[in-house]
Amino acid sequence: MTIIELTDVHKTYHLGETLVKALRGVSLGIDEGDLAAVWGASGSGKSTLLNIIGLVDEPSSGTLTLNGSEVGDMSDNAKTDLRSRYMGFIFQNFNLMPILTALENVMLPLQVQGISALEAQDKALNSLKSVGMEKFSQHRPDKLSGGQRQRVAIARGLVTEPKLLICDEPTANLDFENAERVMDLMCELNEKRGITFLFSTHDTRLIDRVKRIIYIEDGTIVKDERK
């Protein structure tokens, strides 16, 4: 089943007088259970694509269909609520709230949905457990290593049971060992729990472990390879 479908999506940035065409006619569907990597050189448009799929950016033209309904003309609040319900995000820089403990960080997306603190805490602890970080639940992010932070961030992304986890270069700020562990975790979650991942990378060492590789060059998809 297709979660999200892009049809002829263009994205043009205006940099003063010059136009930067970050995406030029991308058509793409992400299916449930995918473990897909967006592969491309720096500046090829990976982040732009992921941001549009994640509903944090808007295409200049083309359509975006989530769960069968068009997203284009929705209000900001409606899109925000869709993100809250269907999307999880994992960022290159982890983006944890520095003033919250690991547990509170993971609780946050649930509380944003209006779930009570008590229930949120239960779910958050489970989520931390699934990434092997339950021992660090009371630690603030600045007391954690990069790899640990990213695992907490994955727990935060997972906790709402999103349809799709979007990860923009999740391992770029990690050393190889930690990158491997994060990759292991993503594979495991995908295999055992069927969680859909879409991530961008230009790390060759990770690429052979994914089920699908979307090659992007200069804002167009040049190859979409499934294993």
Binding site: N77, R83, F89, M97
Partner: peptide, 12 residues
Amino acid sequence: EIGTLRAIGVRR
């Protein structure tokens, strides 16, 4: 932090 909160579903 604002960008992150908005991404994970916090309204304006």
